[in-house]
Design a protein around this nucleic acid. Structure first.
Lengths: 335, 335
DNA sequence: CGATAACATGTTTACGTAAACATCTGGTCT
DNA sequence: AGACCAGATGTTTACGTAAACATGTTATCG
């Protein structure tokens, strides 16, 4: 072990001693506060660099400064959507020198509450939560903590303070109208996550009621318990098409599943969309590389993350309110 | 604003007052240390719950406790590989009550150094860095800080203390031997990230020299500056196949690109692997949903993250050494 | 039966930083 | 010339927690 292993890291006092000034002077010089001679500034900077001084933020925050740290709770890392959201969050926070600490709830509200409590112990200045349904305990905890809270993805429901997302209901209903307009009446629905993905459920509910209102019907419904993936979509589509023979179209809860469905159709010479139309959700980038464009709804995932991050970071041009971003229908190839 | 917005969160003193004991008793009871009457335990627990007390870890860490926080620096979030690594890290840390704070370096060593310095200001008990090439400043900084450091993905080079990954060179060379065995001699290479992905470069270098040693040759080489993606792979493959007509096989720096290449071939009636063989890297799950299996190298990404996390979390059964995990060749469909 | 150990609690202090509150110059203004 | 203020620096203190060091009170043991 080197000599540094046991010795604690250099503090402002060490820097001060080396520079021949007081600790307070070091604190001020490093923060660029107050008036100092060029000589002192240089001595402090040199001493800090020579010792490899790194600020101890725990002490600063303890003393009352804001902690540039944001707790982020995502339901899963297995879905690209949340990765995009995370990228938006991270990029935006990085711009203002903040960092995310994060946790994965696996779509469990109880786990989310535990995670939030854990994160609050580091006194972060904000939290970003997924979805808008939370336990009462969590609501009480964050209310008391006084940190800024952003809820993302979903805006339909009772938000804590600011929510950033799209209207899941509008997206589902729009897809139903598109199906009807394309002449699809007999529709199958394929989902994943065993119904714990509340946003997919909201889309589906709105989709179904709009479809039925317009004269269509759901002829098949399958929500698998596994996590969403292309292979799962392929498998479920195979099962669906062998179970029901007269289905015009399949609405998948997301693009992974839909792309898997397309792969099944390609391999089994089922024409898309004439044999069966497929629609997903999210408009993931890899769709554009598939042999054929399928219908989907574009979701502004990165923007949702970025905007939520701006809010919790304290940007004053992002008010605490319901921010409903635009989710646009993307129509697939019809050849 | 509610009355809680200005008032600071309850402390151990508040809990102690409510329970009618001293702050120290609260500290001990909550940590389950020392002996206490059932009565006191109950009173403290009730008071803590009633006030919604949450521990202030900043104070604990400041006082000398270990901070259950790990700084994680990844080169990008645009590559699924790092998401899998992150999942392994997160799951493993969560098991022992630790959380990752993280940053993205965009493949820049300078940015990585900045990020590490920033993270160290929170006194984390460990760091997970990507790759094994780092600036001297970073090496000095982490050495002085005394935190545990794990380097992931890459094991070829001079590690700080513990490295977890696969042999990029062996993977590249193995693929070259596979190409030769399959009769492919004239090979194209398609990469991305403009050469800043040092691991891809190591694979390619080993691949090329092994290929040439066995009588093959590189007839085309294109490393695009953009981030890796299926659409990019499709585009580059189209360009490649229109530029060189006599190429037997294409080695892509990863599966996204290779899958994009496959999509190009499918859409343009180029038979795979007879017209041109395609090989990627990583064995991403979505490959199994494609119409055809392409050759790739399976990388234990999740395991790398999990093992590195175990190490930095302080597991004593993970020694500080070079951990070389197995990367297995996965042969694609030959039909 | 005095000593020792296990129980059950409290007091003081330190961690590293920054706000609040001093000083002490040397000009500037009236 | 006295007042006043910007420049340039230092001292004290508090943030919330837990280790170190008390101080009792009961059992327990030889």
């Amino acid at each position: 072990m080197s000599q540094a292993s046991k010795k604690s890291r250099p503090t402002m006092h060490d820097v001060a001693a080396k520079a021949g000034v007081s600790q307070m002077t070091v604190s001020r010089v490093l923060r660029g506060e107050g008036y100092f001679s060029q000589d002192v500034k240089t001595r402090v900077a040199d001493a800090a660099k020579a010792l490899g001084y790194i600020q101890n933020r725990l002490a600063s925050v303890q003393r009352g400064m804001e902690n540039p740290m944001i707790g982020v709770v995502l339901p899963t890392l297995k879905n690209t959507v949340f990765i995009d959201v995370l990228a938006g969050i991270n990029d935006t926070l990085a711009e203002v020198g903040m960092r995310p600490v994060f946790g994965v709830s696996e779509y469990s509200e109880a786990e989310e509450e535990t995670l939030v409590r854990d994160m609050l112990s580091w006194q972060p200045c904000g939290l970003i939560l997924s979805g808008i349904e939370h336990t009462d305990g969590l609501r009480r905890t964050v209310a008391q903590s006084g940190v800024r809270v952003a809820e993302i993805m979903d805006v339909e429901g009772d938000a804590i303070s600011a929510s950033f997302g799209i209207s899941q209901q509008a997206a589902g209903a729009e897809m139903a109208r598109h199906f009807i307009a394309q002449g699809h009446r007999r529709v199958a629905y394929i989902g994943s996550q065993g119904g714990s993905d509340l946003r997919a459920l909201k889309r589906y509910t709105a989709f179904k009621s709009e479809l039925e209102a317009e004269g269509g019907c759901i002829t098949y419904e399958r929500i698998a318990n596994r996590a969403s993936s292309m292979p799962l979509g392929r498998e479920l589509t195979a099962a669906c098409l062998s179970d029901v023979t007269d289905c015009d179209a399949i609405y998948f809860s997301n693009d992974d599943l839909a792309a898997g469905g397309l792969m099944h159709c390609l391999s089994n010479k089922v024409s898309v969309p004439h044999g069966v139309a497929l629609a997903g959700f999210n408009d993931l980038p890899f769709l554009s590389a598939l042999p054929q464009r399928i219908t989907t709804t574009h979701t502004p995932r990165y923007e949702i993350g970025a905007l939520a991050a701006r809010y919790v970071a304290g940007a004053d041009d992002v008010p605490a309110k319901r921010h409903m971003l635009l989710a646009e229908l993307v129509v697939g190839d019809t050849t």
